[in-house]
Design a protein around this nucleic acid. Sequence first.
DNA 1: ACCGGTACTTGGTATCACACGGTAATGGAG
DNA 2: CTCCATTACCGTGTGATACCAAGTACCGGT
Lengths: 109, 109
Amino acid sequence: MDDLTELLKGVLEGCVLHILSRGGNYGYEIVRSLNRAGFASVAEGTVYPILLRLENKRLVEVARVKSESGPPRKVYTLNARGRAALEAFWRRWEFVSSRLAIMKETDND
Amino acid sequence: MDDLTELLKGVLEGCVLHILSRGGNYGYEIVRSLNRAGFASVAEGTVYPILLRLENKRLVEVARVKSESGPPRKVYTLNARGRAALEAFWRRWEFVSSRLAIMKETDND
DNA sequence: ACCGGTACTTGGTATCACACGGTAATGGAG
DNA sequence: CTCCATTACCGTGTGATACCAAGTACCGGT
């Protein structure tokens, strides 16, 4: 697939919120979850800054959890503000998505 | 509606290509066409740079046309490369759009 | 002569994805 | 015991983009 980076602006943060809405998760695993969801080329260097942002915006709670295989994990969990942000994201997404669907199917105007 | 700017990254250029695919058009009118299409807050300062980019990427042909009411218009017309770019845009859009649709409706994974 | 609508341009800011490199902890192969 | 792959995280810089603000210019009507 071609270069999607511009189209992913704002989208990836929403995806991460959505993944977190299914329960606490940590960066490394979120990357692979995104890869499985079709965003194959999304790398760690993209996801960790997003998690930092979510933390700074107070949309998540953070807990350090020891791992059996490697350094301790930073497990992120959505809080109330985070859930609201996720809903707001889906609203925004629905909005532009629907406008583009209309645009794509109309030749006039 | 909330702030859509991040979600519009990459999208607006595609929209402008799509508008131009319906025949030659000029900046000021494209702005209003976008506004009518639901992107109400998109302003001139956003669209003119896009047109400049399309010109630099050689996706459009430009012609100065006198106007009956105001300064001359820069009328842009899609060329072959532009039409190819539009198709590529829709492909990319379909890709991320479909992935998000799947993600939105699944709670597991 | 002024003003509102038309039409384009420019400069600066903020935000984001991403590449790149670095750090650290564990466990297994040699 | 040492090397190395895997797991896991962090920081910096770059490029692309939307957007804001302000300015320039052309025209017609009052």
